[in-house]
Amino acid sequence: MPANRSSGRDVFMYLASVPTVSIGGGFTNPTLTKMAFLDSLDVLITHDSPLRVYRINDGRIQIQRTQDSLLPGEYEVESDGYLAVTDAPYYQRSSSAMSSLSSSDRDRRCVITGLAMTQRELVLQRWTKYEAAHTFPVALESIFQNYNFAELTVLDERDGSVNSPQNGLLLQRLNTIFCFLDDSLGLAGRQLDPVCRDPGQPHHVNDNVLFWHFQQAVLANMRAAGEPIFDEDIPPGSDTMNAILSGPVPGERMEFELSKRLGDVMRAQGSFSIK
């Protein structure tokens, strides 16, 4: 992720009501289909009538809801009703992963790449190549309650908290950053192994929590110039410790900083539970 989230963008978005001011943008990649782009605009823009989106390069071509890849360029959004960029809050987050989440037993393979655990790994419960990552971060547990997600992740007496298996996914270690550190559009949730999303499976991953993650990724990366990144948003000469300890959720940034600085050492000792 670049220091400036808007650096290198090749997709730029405008409201038809103010066509000279960009409201944000993004990056084209194989997962950014026209359908995914339109879904992200439904998060980014508050509207009371259906949106119409046009690519204004080389003519004004309306974008249809297909799986075709989105092309770089400038896009204009219009509607017959109310139209404005959302003021929904973005919660800056740290990465969290715990090998103890029972989603590990449910998924038994990386839900993105499909790499399955060996029988020996399953028997010995060795998770060295995997992490059970939280979809909704541990550091935001109070907000988890505010969204009533606790009620949505209850299947038996063990659940109902941010550590519910319905809030966890098994991932290869190399994929955790792809899926759960506000990737370019948070689209990884659309590519999950069907087993972990099957409502008929015990402790299936909760779609409401996944959609929350998708919304947060859109707000972080597509709105305006994007949200600040931890390493880059402390001005020179500032009180670094005070900046680390401040924020909407006390301790969240400290978790991130400790993870970044000490994570490799503590993981090597087998005593660290967050990524």
Rank of each mutant, 00 (worst) to 15 (best):
A217D: 02
A217T: 07
A217R: 02
A217I: 01
A217W: 00
A217C: 14
A217K: 00
A217P: 01
A217Y: 00
V218R: 03
V218K: 01
V218G: 02
L219W: 13
L219C: 12
A220P: 12
A220M: 10
A220R: 13
N221L: 01
N221F: 02
N221C: 02
N221Q: 04
M222T: 06
M222W: 13
M222E: 07
M222F: 13
M222S: 11
R223M: 11
R223N: 13
R223A: 14
R223Q: 15
R223C: 12
R223D: 10
A224M: 10
A224G: 08
A224Y: 04
A224V: 04
A224H: 05
A225E: 14
A225N: 09
A225W: 03
G226A: 05
G226C: 08
G226K: 05
G226L: 05
G226H: 07
E227W: 06
E227K: 10
E227M: 13
E227I: 12
P228G: 03
P228L: 03
P228A: 05
I229D: 00
I229A: 01
I229F: 00
I229S: 03
I229E: 01
F230M: 03
F230R: 01
F230I: 02
F230C: 00
D231I: 01
D231G: 05
D231L: 03
D231H: 03
D231V: 02
E232C: 09
E232Q: 11
E232P: 00
E232A: 14
E232L: 05
D233I: 11
D233Y: 12
D233C: 14
I234H: 12
P235M: 04
P235K: 04
P235T: 10
P236W: 03
P236G: 09
G237A: 04
S238W: 05
S238V: 09
S238M: 06
S238H: 09
S238R: 08
S238E: 10
D239P: 07
D239L: 13
D239V: 09
D239T: 12
M241R: 12
M241L: 14
M241A: 09
N242T: 14
A243T: 04
A243V: 01
A243D: 08
I244A: 06
I244V: 13
L245F: 09
L245P: 02
L245I: 06
S246Y: 00
S246M: 08
S246D: 08
S246C: 06
S246G: 07
G247Y: 01
G247P: 02
G247S: 00
G247Q: 02
P248Y: 04
P248M: 12
P248I: 10
V249Q: 12
V249S: 10
